[in-house]
Computed example of a mutant assay.
Amino acid sequence: MVLRKSPICGFVFVLLLFLSSFLGTLFIISPLLPLMIFKPKWWRFVIDEVMGSWITYAVSLMEVLAGIKIRISGDMFGQGESNLIIMNHHTRLDWMFLWMCLIRRSEVKQEKIILKSVLKLIPGAGWAMQTACYIFIERKWEYDNRTFTKLLDYFREAKVTKPQILLFPEGTDFTAKNKARSDEFACQNGLPLYEFVLHPRTTGFVFLASKMREGGMLSAVYDICIGYPQTRPQNEMDILYGKFPEDIHFHIKRHPVITLPIGDKGLQEWCELRWRDKEAMLKRFYAERHFTETAAASSGRDRDVRLLLRFCFVLWTSLVVVWLAFLLYSSVARWYALTHCVLFYAVYWWNGGMEHLEISIFNWWKSVCQ
């Protein structure tokens, strides 16, 4: 346990996460790029499966290597759904920790995270997220509006994946600086001051919920509350220094699409009300160190993933070792890797990223086949 909380564990965790994403992109995803050109739907299906496998490895690093435990309460996810997930944003790493929940109650390969556009430049992980069709935003609504529309239209028309879109309505993680800004906004608009959450920015939620519902892509909104009863790493540097949470709690509330209000104003007020509920829920959580809410008419039980996590831990770690040896002893492998590194950055500067290239190719095929 001491080793798990040490900088050594943090360094190994970050190193394996980086190497697996970087080398996995080069040696698994890159050879599949011709599928994007000649069989776009096959490409989307295969890449989602690859991403699901890698996310499982990331979860194995969190649980097997770092020893993080989780506790999930509340509703089960419906099978075969397209849905929207909204969650409070305690730390910059909440999106990664959520994988530990989804792997037990949903399908991680379906998840499409809304992220800052600068993250697509990260070698390996950023490239993989591009090919996975994650949604990158600039925080400029005139740009983000077009991005949301483009990606949602693609998911609807391709009919290969049923997206499970993760949105943090707060827009940023919970820090003293961000809380001060949220409090200032609340005072200016006559809103209550929150202690455990930031006031949500509802524009993105309203647009996504409306657009997905109009396109028949919204089965439910899943309102997830995340809490850290003990250690709470705020950012990547905390993880690097071995500051892992001992356990993480999730509470899930499913809101079927038929229960959502109609109209932008109604959706805005609905989202704001959910955050008032979160504030009250988290106040109790940090007093009692667990969620006291119970699930309403949920059925089923969490998937047992212990063997799967250990298998992926061994498989992906072995692949990383093999790929590193390949690069070390083969000049051909090094030239191959360099070429594809240049390719990913070239596509980014030329077309905005692999996800935009994928959509352009899909639309071209659609026009040819009509």
Rank of each mutant, 00 (worst) to 15 (best):
H89W: 00
G74C: 10
F185K: 12
M129W: 13
T91S: 12
P163E: 03
L119G: 04
G78F: 00
L166G: 07
Y194A: 11
T203R: 15
T202K: 14
T202Q: 10
F168S: 03
K109C: 01
F136V: 02
I122T: 15
W127F: 11
V108N: 03
M129L: 13
K159Y: 03
T203V: 13
G126Y: 13
V118T: 15
T175P: 03
H90S: 15
L84W: 07
I114N: 04
V206W: 07
S73N: 09
R213C: 02
S73V: 08
P169H: 02
K211Q: 14
C101R: 04
T203D: 06
L93S: 09
T147V: 15
E170Y: 03
N178C: 01
F97V: 10
A132F: 10
G171H: 07
Y143G: 01
Y134C: 13
D183T: 03
H89P: 06
C133K: 15
M100H: 02
A186S: 13
G190Q: 04
A158W: 05
A128C: 14
T131M: 14
S73Q: 11
F168K: 06
L115Q: 05
L208D: 09
I103G: 02
Q79G: 01
W95K: 07
Y194N: 12
S210I: 02
T202R: 14
T131C: 15
T131Y: 14
F155D: 08
M96G: 10
F136D: 06
M76N: 13
M100T: 12
V197R: 05
P200A: 09
I86F: 05
N88I: 08
E142L: 08
A186M: 06
R139A: 08
D75A: 12
R92W: 08
E195T: 15
G74N: 10
N189G: 01
K140N: 13
G126A: 08
Y143W: 07
W141S: 08
S210V: 01
T149C: 11
G190I: 01
E157N: 14
G190L: 08
P123Y: 09
L98A: 13
L198S: 05
A176G: 00
N178K: 04
V197Q: 04
D153L: 14
C133A: 14
V197I: 10
W99M: 13
T91R: 05
P200V: 12
S210C: 05
Q79C: 00
L198D: 02
L102K: 03
L102R: 04
L193K: 14
G78I: 05
G80F: 00
P192A: 02
G78E: 12
T147F: 02
R201K: 15
N189Q: 05
Q110W: 09
F155W: 11
E184G: 02
M76F: 01
K112Y: 01
S182A: 04
L121I: 12
Q110M: 01
V197W: 08
E107T: 00
T203F: 03
R181E: 06
C187Q: 14
L102F: 11
R213A: 10
G78R: 10
K109F: 01
G78N: 07
T147S: 09
K177I: 00
K109W: 00
W95N: 06
P192Q: 07
I72Y: 11
Q79P: 01
L102D: 00
W99P: 12
S82K: 09
I137E: 09
A209L: 10
G124D: 05
L152Q: 04
R156P: 00
R213N: 11
